[in-house]
Design a protein around this nucleic acid. Structure first.
Lengths: 147, 147
DNA sequence: ACCTATAATGAGAATGATTCTTATTATCAG
DNA sequence: CTGATAATAAGAATCATTCTCATTATAGGT
């Protein structure tokens, strides 16, 4: 399923950076758009109808990451997972399943997010740390892995 | 620098699980105890006075992880980092430097931690997720990497 | 449409972290 | 002290990821 708004935002961002938005790249991005949360390279590859070689897939993801279109996430078994950057999907947090390793995005209401931001800047301030981002990671069993 | 209390707690845990606490294992644990936060295998290896072969180091860390003595953490460049489990060091969160990749532990006062816990269980409850742990990860530049 | 410069692709080799295999050595219980 | 079992060490094997380089596609100017 195509997603015109996102495609257009991404195309603009890439054009600004003089990075081409080719068929292969569009295909990879489409795979990410259809995912529920951060995906591994293998998951992305399997989700594509037209197969993209691994080397191209990795390179595309690296380019998208440098362009700020995707962000990376490490968790569970240490595999790198990729998802659309937050300016495209909105700020969110992660539910990490300790059994199957999948990561689901979860959103948080505005007032709780405010609380979190205050907490983050308080903590970071005390450590002379220059914050650029934060993420609440919740570990446990996803609904699929609970018996 | 030795740390008798921790050593004793760890020895007890391992004894309960019928896992031996050998010289090599003590040495690796000592390396972790002296670290400021989650360490990579390389960092651990370099911190040891008596060198431990990589294969043994990895195996020891795997055993300690299974025994609940250490926990793993993935961030930055995707390297696995190891640290003592929270029941030994107390609950804490992480400051992850996006430049050098180091991770520092940071503690949080009781009332803020309560807030966080409420938030976590609210979020997880809505997603039918069975929470076992949570961690607030703050990304940015550590004090060493700020010019 | 046709060149041309340049960027992107794809196949496979190379790297690097981690895991596995197996023979040797250390440890615990009796 | 001795045997049974667990732990160690060395190197091979694996797996994700990155790199190399020859080929192909793309955008802009003609």
């Amino acid at each position: 399923m195509p997603h015109p708004q996102l495609d257009q935002q991404i195309a603009k961002r890439l054009a600004d950076k003089d990075v081409r938005f080719t068929k292969g790249r569009r295909s990879v991005v489409a795979g990410l758009v259809n995912g529920e949360g951060p995906m591994t390279v293998t998951e992305i590859q399997e989700s594509l109808e037209v197969s993209v070689p691994l080397s191209s897939l990795y390179r595309t993801l690296a380019v998208m990451n440098e362009s700020g279109v995707v962000s990376t996430h490490h968790s569970g078994q240490g595999l790198t997972r990729y998802e659309l950057a937050e300016w495209l999907t909105g700020h969110h947090h992660h539910l990490v399943c300790t059994r199957c390793g999948t990561v689901d995005d979860i959103e948080i209401d505005v007032e709780h997010e405010r609380q979190l931001e205050v907490l983050v800047s308080t903590l970071a301030g005390g450590a002379n740390f220059d914050v650029s981002d934060h993420s609440l990671e919740i570990d446990g069993l996803c609904h699929r892995c609970q018996r």
